[in-house]
Design a protein around this nucleic acid. Structure first.
Lengths: 252, 252
DNA sequence: TCAAAAATCAATCACTTTCAATCAAAAACA
DNA sequence: TGTTTTTGATTGAAAGTGATTGATTTTTGA
């Protein structure tokens, strides 16, 4: 087989599968591992694909650079750890809803290469998902300026045509009396609906969210599990455990 | 065998197989390797094929989509002018569909401040629209890796809940026989549906698109007006005017 | 959590194939 | 016949190949 031929084959396999492993390519092309590696290096330098450990993935143009603001945002280490743990809950074959927001965004990069289907209402996390070779569906609807979340009738209707194994939701407040809350009623409706459509619902919340109450209620505490970090006081952890299950993540 | 004869044979073998090896050609033509090499060199200089190490390949890439990056660089001045004119067609109060793509993207920045509602299937133009203060709705559906266009059942269903005063569509080919075409059938369906739902439909096409034919048909030429530029030959302009209205934009 | 085990990686070697350049013989032409 | 064009063989250079190495990364399991 000609070099050119083989490289085209690699690209077409990649387009089909979003992501390919080197061993897979060795089998398909009957070439040695070395040769495949050289092909991948060359194709990457041509910007026709992106190499990842163990194989290659489709290249995607960034929708937006991760803004400085996001990087500097509060508790980013904590959020990242929470996101990583949330990603570990996702198993091969799962269908998953991931909410718009900064905490949920950190999940995306840890989902790399998993054979799953993700539905989201957050434009901010689309590129992360695609870069990691995830099959991604987006809700339709009105694009809220600022957060770039999808809301409104269209979004809810879109949502109603899906079922999820797991839903990962962000919230601005988690309070024993008021439950999970968020400022925008429209967003609250999306989050609430997503929880309803999932077998397992998780709210991702760093320690600063506990005790806070926002304008719009999403759900009661007992309607979703909480993923948080050890930064939350032991006392408070125990308090909240009376209302719902709490997954407390250790921070490095 | 005559030189000319042999070269035609090479080309016809190439068309059959997309790619041919030198040894294969030596066998078929009973000529020496050197002769074949000379033929290939000559045919390549005539741009009738592309040499690759070990053989030659066709230069056609109609089924392949140029990457977003490639698209953006080509004819950008022309596209920008076309986009500007398209934006000028939009009146206050209009509800407008804007297709995913690079040409349509240039529209967005010229819509600044207009009191309109925009629906789009292109993630690549969302930020431009929001930055210019446009009320923006997004179709739902599957996010196509690479172009970041929304496609699939969800996208079509979303589309069906809207009505547009005007739709602005991109296409890869515009041909008198084959009509408007684009490589991906899923995208073709979205474009076609959007045209159906609009009182006025416009296809934005720079001069390079005319006469080209891609894999999937969108609509016949007479089902939308074309916005193009004066870079399109006068002769061709007249030819296409027999099939549909042509808005020819002057480039500064 | 941490360290051992496994997998993946880039770099290099020896070997094969393909390449362009050259030259002389054969064929075509006048 | 002599001249030009085409052809096939030869050659050293360039490109491509698979195997092996030891370094790096990821996964596993105590």
């Amino acid at each position: 087989m000609l070099t050119f031929e083989r490289q085209e084959l690699i690209l077409s396999l990649l387009k089909e599968n979003q992501i390919v492993k080197i061993q897979q390519l060795v089998e398909e092309t009957q070439a040695s591992e070395s040769t495949i590696r050289r092909d991948l290096t060359e194709l990457e330098s041509q910007k026709r694909l992106k190499r990842v450990h163990g194989g290659a993935s489709l290249i995607t143009k960034k929708l937006e650079e991760p803004s400085l603001l996001e990087k500097q945002s509060k508790y980013s280490a904590e959020k990242s750890t929470i996101g990583k743990y949330a990603a570990s809950l996702v198993k091969e074959g799962d269908s998953v809803f991931i909410d718009a927001g900064t905490t949920t965004k950190t999940m995306a990069e840890y989902l790399h290469g998993k054979e799953i289907v993700v539905v989201t209402n957050g434009l901010n996390i689309i590129t992360d998902l695609l870069d990691n070779g995830i099959k991604t569906y987006l809700l339709g609807g009105y694009v809220k300026a600022g957060t770039h979340a999808l809301i409104g009738r269209g979004a809810v209707e879109s949502l109603n045509s899906y079922q999820f194994d797991k839903a990962f939701i962000g919230a601005n407040g988690a309070d024993t009396e008021s439950g999970f809350t968020t400022p925008d009623p429209e967003e609250a409706l999306i989050k609430s609906t997503a929880i309803d459509k999932a077998n397992n619902a998780y709210v991702l919340a760093d320690h600063s969210k506990f005790g806070d109450v926002s304008f719009s209620k999403i759900k009661n505490l007992n309607e979703a599990e909480i993923i948080t970090s050890e930064k939350l006081d032991k006392e408070l952890q125990d308090k909240y455990r009376k209302y719902t299950e709490l997954k407390v993540v250790h921070i490095n």
